[in-house]
Design a protein around this nucleic acid. Structure first.
Lengths: 239, 239
DNA sequence: ATGATCGCGTAACCTAGGTTAACCGCAAAG
DNA sequence: CTTTGCGGTTAACCTAGGTTACGCGATCAT
């Protein structure tokens, strides 16, 4: 259940059993949501945040003309809108990309938690700052990488992030996005996203069918993407 | 001096005089830096953060091929690398775009501050989350807006942010970036950044000379950019 | 004072990616 | 069953923005 979240945290820091108990007590309610639902609408007032236990969520922003940009993907273990704890309303939507299981965490409890365990406060602050790092890497992709390198980069990033929470299997992972959604992550049209994916297949780097992505040549993919996972802060934090 | 930082904070929340005193005591040392210097290099270990008192800073990421993306611009009053407080090393460089005056704030003092004033801890957390919001809007720009709309958007955003700290004058502001640097913010080549700027001038929306930007037709510029400042969280925070 | 460098401006040409419009297979709905 | 709609695929064509190259003036180091 919430164990996946602890797994992610423990990748970066030690969590005592006292702290673990307090984190488990954050959860108010566990909800199941079908795919393609908007969970949080931009601007809405918030008094709780969403911890994703299973499935995929996206943060996205739309232009009045209908163009959509996904600014971050969330996977099991992620606090999808922890930044809402301080912002109190979001500047983007949060939607389900697959069926999801989420835990609802009232802000009041987060507040109590970090008062009692200031160290956890810093860790959750760290976690929103890591989202920032992921977004910066996306800006680099959108601004400077070619379509194919951008797509390769996304597949590499997701592999690493999913691996941290044990959601990979033999060089691959479940990938629930449609090509339209994938294109919205990459700032491409669906047509060009498809062309680009074909080219990755043609070069023998990845396979993608039945909502499963297989990385055939990881070194090749990472090379094409100039992928350097440093920005994911995988090491232990000096706390 | 550091008053500009308080001005920015007070736009969003009340600061008591006790809190103000504590914030002023954060500063360890004030330094002056010439333009075009790297202040913090990606990956470097940090034990202090930089509060910008005057001038402009950029956060930028480079690709091995030399391509550079600026992921955020910082102006007077901004804590340029407050996220370094939790991350302990950055995933990007921080450089001066103009001559700058900066205050160095040891992490140790931030830690003491937020232990003593948890409310300020939440405010600084908020402030790093606002950087996230600015970055998301940039992703939307890079992924979905056209070159001209993107440039217009940047000029609008900067106007609002500079206005908060009283750095605008009669529909304009000092704009120290070269066109090369501007192009690195927008994910464009210098040549096309120049073309785009010419087009904004031709349409009678902005003027830019001698490092001063003048917004001639704000409504027109905002319309072209689909600019909606909600993401800048200008209102008072319910804290 | 003078060559070198930098920032700005432009023009000619090129290409990555956008646009439009099909077709196919499949699963859900009737 | 069959229709309908969605996701994926492909092709022809087009354009926003990239590339290369060069000219101009200002500043700066020798």
């Amino acid at each position: 259940m919430i164990t996946v979240h602890l797994k992610k945290l423990r990748r970066r820091i030690e969590i005592s059993s006292d702290e673990e108990r307090a984190i488990r007590a954050l959860v108010d309610e566990i909800r199941t949501m079908p795919a393609d639902r908007i969970l949080i609408r931009s601007g809405e007032e918030l008094n709780s945040s969403i911890l994703l236990l299973d499935g995929w969520l996206s943060r996205s922003k739309d232009l009045p003309g209908g163009e959509r940009q996904v600014t971050e993907l969330h996977i099991a273990g992620d606090f999808a809108d922890l930044h809402g704890f301080t912002l109190k309303r979001l500047d983007h939507d949060v939607s389900t990309l697959s069926d999801c299981k989420v835990a609802v965490v009232p802000h009041e409890r987060i507040k109590e938690l970090i008062e009692k365990f200031p160290r956890l406060g810093q860790i959750y602050w760290f976690s929103t700052n890591m989202d920032g790092a992921i977004q910066r890497e996306l800006s680099l992709s959108l601004g400077q990488r070619s379509a194919i390198s951008r797509m390769a980069h996304l597949f590499c990033e997701l592999y690493v992030r999913l691996d941290v929470v044990g959601r990979t299997t033999s060089n691959g992972y479940a990938f629930p996005l449609t090509q339209r959604e994938l294109s919205e992550c990459l700032g491409l049209t669906v047509v060009h996203a498809n062309r680009t994916l074909q080219e990755l297949r043609r070069r023998g780097l990845v396979e993608l069918e039945n909502r499963r992505l297989k990385i055939v040549d990881r070194a090749g993919l990472e090379g094409l993407a100039d992928f350097d996972p440093t920005y994911l802060y995988l090491g232990k934090l000096p706390l």
